[in-house]
Design a protein around this nucleic acid. Structure first.
Lengths: 199, 199, 199, 199
DNA sequence: CATGAATGAGATTTCATTCAT
DNA sequence: CATGAATGAAATCTCATTCAT
């Protein structure tokens, strides 16, 4: 949809996104080569450029895709919940599950994109913003209903995102095959109530 | 005959570390070139390899150096404080100041090093762990004194580190010349007490 | 059952030659892509290879076609003329008109085909030679009748061809929408009488 | 002087220009590879980019260099001559000698540069114009002194240039080891007096 | 006959690293 | 110790050509 939009639905685009996710996750943006992505996707090198404008476009597309996916899941699940607290808890839980399900993806998110072309950088930022926007909304809602304190919603959202990402990343680099904290409840508690024991 | 060790006392190493910090911060690991670092440091390109084994070694050294520095500062300041709460608050504050003082450094910390040589990767991890260890200790102390809940200290430390980093990063990519939240008090409150209104 | 030869009478070949002329003229041999030629011709990319052996073959065919066409036109017009002088003048005029009618074609003629496959190179050379042969014959005739000096006919023909081509090309690269010398009379005079003022 | 101006005088630049002249002459711009040029020049591939910004820059530099050289030679020789006629004759002679001395260079001059970057295209045009300017001046002089007819000087200059180039090229593609017309006198006569027998 | 998705050889260019001075 | 000219491995991307439909 980025480059050549009218290509027959052969599923190659999906194959490529999957392969790219895998390779970028393992090696990061710069460590990965287009050739390897193509190989993993089971297509020729040139085919990549039939579906994506450049290596960077491919990368950004992977990020967009995944974040959009998560955003969708989160929004869907929040519909049935009442109360900002419950919603935030659920968001964090889903987020956590997502990161532990396709764990290497954290590395993709944290990948060094300094020096990307403006437009693509923009797209990454937007995808991230869109995704974080969901959490931001929940926080805003909580502030309105009085459940949450009067914080800067965006800041809080990024703080939460950061907390989840870093814990997930830590799990990852320590090569634990399963996360050291098995469920998200500790993170939920941390975000909602902080570290301090209540008065 | 001021100094007879085989450590060159010409100060070039320091010059290089400074230059590298600046350039890596601006362009990230992959965006930076050894040549530019040498230029900024005011030395020849070949000189880099007299003091550092490789570009990566230089990069890792910068990270180590900076994290060690911050670790030292934090430890020093914590000595005079009483109570894990106060100590954690101070840690966060210093951390925040650090990130906003040499703001671009966040990018360095988050830089994509996937696929690095094992040894160097190890050193980065250790530097980070050592640095985070300070916060971890404070948390452990708080748990013991009953100030903090009985959380997994490492997880909590990473959550805090992540929260700070992401908020700082968000400030960065939005090109705000000054951070949107001017001091760290909101972050401190978030980490200590969470989002929920008490009672 | 209009035509039973194995020559496809769908007109695609002609369409392709036309499209190729246009595209090669605009972008030169190397700047043009087979895909664009096919697009302009309104056929599929693969179709090109049904009618031509390769991109180069297509290119050479265009040259052949056009030069043959011009050769035909010139020969036809010369039939009714008397005297080598008049014939040469008419040839130059037609040549000039041709170059200014499909002006970009000069670029095609001058296009860099170095390193072409021998066979194709040969064909270009022959086409050019055949085309120039007309002028050569006129010159030979003029020498016999005593109208022209006893020059090497081929050399003279190439000199004339070069003079016309370069002036046309100069017009082209200077982006003049109409040639700076509107008719060929100056060129005719140059070729017939040279620069020097008589006696 | 194009890219990195302050490189020690190791003679590599000259080596590269020579190698490039040779390779571009044999294979044309597109047929030549940077690697081969480097090989012929006896340097590494990367070295090319130390002295020239790109393959195209290298190519244009060769053209500039050679045309400037010829221009210089012509100007020098014309100084001692009297009369536009004699000057033009000498110019043509030198031109002819030049083309037959480094004969393959014609192909370089005629090379297909469609689609070059604007700036470089400009440089080629200017080099050519500067070179042809010499002939143009001579023609202007001749017109003023009454030796030549009142033609458009630029057109005449290009016509002459074209005549010489095409004859030289014809010699070349026919693989004659020595030119079919050994000296330039026929060309001189053609340009000065045309084909027609006087009176 | 016609198509265009797929391919992969091949070209340019960058840049970490070396080493002669 | 210091330098920076030289190198060449490696990566991205293009595009003529093929072939299954």
């Amino acid at each position: 949809m980025t480059n050549n939009s009218d290509i027959q639905e052969s599923g190659k685009r999906e194959l490529l996104l999957e392969g790219a996710l895998k390779v970028f996750s393992e090696k990061g943006f710069h460590g990965a080569t287009v050739e390897e992505v193509a190989e993993v996707a089971g297509v020729g090198k040139g085919t990549v450029y039939l579906y994506f404008g450049s290596k960077t476009d491919l990368f950004v597309s992977v990020v967009e895709e995944k974040l959009k996916e998560l955003k969708g899941v989160v929004k869907e699940r929040l519909k049935d919940l009442e109360g900002a607290r419950a919603k935030l808890a659920e968001s964090i839980k889903l987020h956590w599950e997502f990161f532990n399900q396709s764990r290497e993806f954290v590395k993709v998110i944290l990948s060094d994109l300094s020096g990307l072309e403006r437009e693509l950088d923009e797209r990454t930022r937007e995808a991230r913003a869109g995704f974080i926007g969901v959490i931001e909304s929940v926080i805003e809602e909580g502030i309105m209903t009085g459940e949450f304190k009067d914080v800067e919603p965006r800041m809080a959202a990024y703080a939460i995102e950061g907390a989840i990402s870093f814990v997930a990343f830590e799990n990852l680099v320590n090569d634990k095959s399963s996360p050291s904290i098995p469920d998200a409840s500790q993170l939920v508690d941390f975000c909602l109530c902080g570290l301090c024991r209540l008065g």
